[in-house]
Design a protein around this nucleic acid. Structure first.
Length: 663
DNA sequence: TGCGGCGGCGCC
DNA sequence: AAAGGGCGCCGCCGCA
């Protein structure tokens, strides 16, 4: 393996425009490249004013794998080395990403974070950020600082990055061949990109700026200038407290507890409660207070800022946003994540293609939008993603895949009975309600129970999910549902316990395998100071690094629990160790369910061309209009075909054709 | 001015 | 014997 790292400079703002635009920008150039061959330990530091050393050329040409941390960036920069500096081409399949390797090992994706979490002595040089600011970013006049000494420092820094990368690669397991292929597939999807309706996004951004200003003016007026934007949550909170006093009913409604600490929040749910109670005259307040809460509600239609991001991130020429997907970005479950333009949390409730085009037309004419403008714009987000001229989207999602995977993994009679409901095409939510003795009319309760309770969630999980479906229950009522669901789904309760026991046994008896349903745990004592491996069919592996059994103080007293390092919890800057978390049965159940569903997604993606996006249980293909009927049929067949390693798991999907992303 | 922490949003 | 958790981005705010 040849491990490389580039330092570069550019007038392009990497963070704002994304690495694809950065690499293609004409002002982007290489400052230096460091390389290390893991076979020979040979190291090179190359500057663009030098010839490419013969030995380095040889190492590049003969490497089995060329590895970089976040290799998609280095792949793009490497093209500059090929074009401008005569470097040899590297075949796509040879590229390898050490950040992806970190993620499949469930350690942080960032290079220094990974070294920190692993407890390595080899760490990145802290002067890097300073050097990048000096040498990589343009000065106000657009030119770059040329400084021999700093450039030498930059070379040191670059070489140290390669050394740290090497240490991290050696301290963790390599990606399996399949993981590597799946990573390469992600690169392919990222390079294809998704097309943005540029004119629509531009208009939407324009209208949202105008509307937010209008909201701001009203807020300034009501609060005498204390609050100048709807997003100033702290100022709005303080203004309300000053106006109403600590004991006012509205302030009481705002109380939330975070890790035992009382805070005042005005999030969507709380705003709705407040506005409802005012509406029903359960609370009497003056109009100013109501208006402020209402204006906050109007302005906080999420993610209208995404239009701005779309325009920044897309390629200037073809208007495609590239590099949106991260293979195994969620390191607990190896699900994909999305970055830059976050395609994984676009508002689902949106306009149809016809409606979107009507609104686009109105905006293009400069007509005012009627009704709740921010709401209208927010419902345009998904439809702003479109197929290219002559193309169309084919979109498929699996029907309640997690609700099927969980019972399948449990490998139990009760789980089989649950799967049978799916196999017979019955409504699983009605069946759940019936089983709980609630009658068919209680489908909503059955649905919330099925969605919220499978992973050991209790009253809080049930009620917060219930709110999303307009269901209101007291804690006592909710507890009743929880109890009934657990007694009618004893297989799930048993599975949580089995998973926890198997995981604990695995840690107690290293290198021995312990099973819970279709899930196997194995503790590898030599891997990252002890890693709990969770093994499933389909070559699916998830990891719990530095797992151990330890006494943990809980509100029920001291208990022996599994704890492990948690990649996504970044410690504060002055902390010595990476953060850990407790692990319990319900969490294990959730992790392996999501991980297995993600494996089914990757299995399908592997067999598909023309993928432009995926969202956990959904696949988006962009294909020529004429071939779409065939593609539609094939996609359904592929998605409904259970992989050989998941026999007995019923999968259904009904892909549809879309002129715009959305409905 | 830059950065980390925090509150907030939304999806699966 | 209790437990939703997996994500990423935006904007504000206080601090260095």
């Amino acid at each position: 393996m040849l491990i490389i790292d580039f330092e570069t400079r550019s007038q392009c703002d990497l963070k704002k425009k994304g690495s694809s635009n950065y690499c293609l920008d004409p002002s982007t150039d290489i400052l230096c490249m460091a390389a290390l061959c893991t076979d020979t330990e040979s190291k090179w530091l190359w500057y663009p004013d030098e010839e490419l050393p013969q030995a380095l050329r040889y190492a590049i040409e003969n490497a089995d794998l060329v590895c970089a941390h976040n290799a998609e960036f280095d792949m793009g920069i490497y093209q500059i080395a090929v074009t401008d500096y005569g470097f040899p081409q590297i075949p796509k399949q040879k590229w390898y990403c050490s950040s992806a390797q970190c993620r499949v090992n469930a350690i942080p994706a960032g290079l220094d974070d990974a070294a920190w979490a692993l407890g390595l002595k080899t760490r990145k040089y802290s002067k890097g950020a300073h050097l990048i600011k000096k040498l990589s970013m343009p000065r106000p006049d657009g030119t770059f600082l040329e400084d021999e000494e700093l450039l030498i420092d930059m070379g040191d820094y670059c070489m140290q990055d390669v050394i740290v990368t090497t240490a991290v690669v050696r301290a963790t397991r390599p990606m399996t061949q399949m993981e590597h292929q799946d990573w390469l597939k992600t690169v392919e999807v990222n390079q294809r990109g998704v097309l943005i309706d540029y004119d629509l996004a531009t208009s939407a951004l324009d209208y949202s700026d105008t509307e937010q200003s209008a909201i701001a003016i009203k807020l300034i007026d009501i609060t005498d200038g204390v609050v100048t934007r709807h997003s100033q949550s702290a100022r709005i909170r303080d203004w309300l407290v000053a106006r109403l006093g600590d004991d006012h009913a509205i302030i009481k409604l705002m109380e939330v507890y975070k890790e035992g600490v009382k805070k005042l929040s005005l999030d969507k749910n709380i705003r709705r409660n407040i506005l409802n109670m005012i509406e029903n005259s359960e609370i009497i307040v003056d109009d100013d207070v109501r208006d402020v809460v209402q204006l906050l509600d109007d302005g906080n239609k999420s993610s209208v800022a995404k239009f701005k991001r779309m325009l920044e991130m897309c390629d200037e020429e073809d208007h495609r946003v590239r590099g949106a997907f991260v293979f195994a970005g969620a390191s607990q479950t190896l699900r994909y994540t999305s970055r830059g333009l976050q395609l994984h949390n676009m508002r689902r409730d949106c306009w149809s293609a016809d409606e979107a085009e009507h609104i686009a037309h109105l905006m293009a004419q400069g007509e005012p939008l009627e009704g709740d403008v921010m709401e209208t714009l927010s419902k345009l987000l998904r439809p702003a993603i479109i197929p290219a001229q002559g193309n169309i989207f084919v979109v498929g999602d699996w029907s309640s895949i997690e609700a099927r995977v969980l019972p399948w993994l449990s490998d139990s009679d009760g789980g089989d009975a649950k799967l049978q409901i799916f196999k017979e095409g019955k409504d699983v939510y009605i069946e759940a309600a019936k089983a709980m003795g609630l009658g068919e009319s209680s489908r909503q309760i059955g649905k919330v129970a099925e969605l919220a309770l499978g992973y050991q969630g209790g009253v809080n999980a049930f009620n917060s999910m219930a709110r999303n479906y307009g269901l209101s229950m007291s804690d006592a009522e909710a507890q009743g549902v929880v109890d009934k669901w657990r007694s009618t789904n004893a297989w799930a309760v048993r599975f949580w316990a089995e998973l926890e026991q198997a995981a604990k046994d695995a840690i107690s008896f290293p290198t021995k395998k312990f099973h819970a349903g279709m899930v196997t745990y194995l503790f590898a004592p030599d891997m990252m100071e002890g890693t709990l491996l969770c093994l499933m069919e389909g070559d699916t592996i998830i990891q719990y690094p530095k797992a151990k059994l330890e006494m943990v103080a809980t509100k029920f007293g001291d208990r022996v629990q599994i704890t492990a390092l948690k990649a996504s919890l970044k410690p504060k800057a002055d902390a010595k160790q990476w953060l850990r978390t407790s692990i319990y049965g319900g969490l294990l159940a959730e992790n392996c369910t999501q991980a297995f569903a993600a494996a089914i997604l990757r299995n399908a993606l592997r067999q598909l061309d023309d993928v432009v996006a995926s969202v956990h249980d959904e696949i988006v293909l962009e294909v020529g209009y004429d071939e779409s009927p065939t593609v539609l049929k094939n996609l359904q067949q592929l998605m409904e075909e259970t992989p050989s390693w998941a026999e007995g798991l019923p999968l259904t999907a009904e892909p549809v054709i879309m002129r715009r992303y959305g409905k």
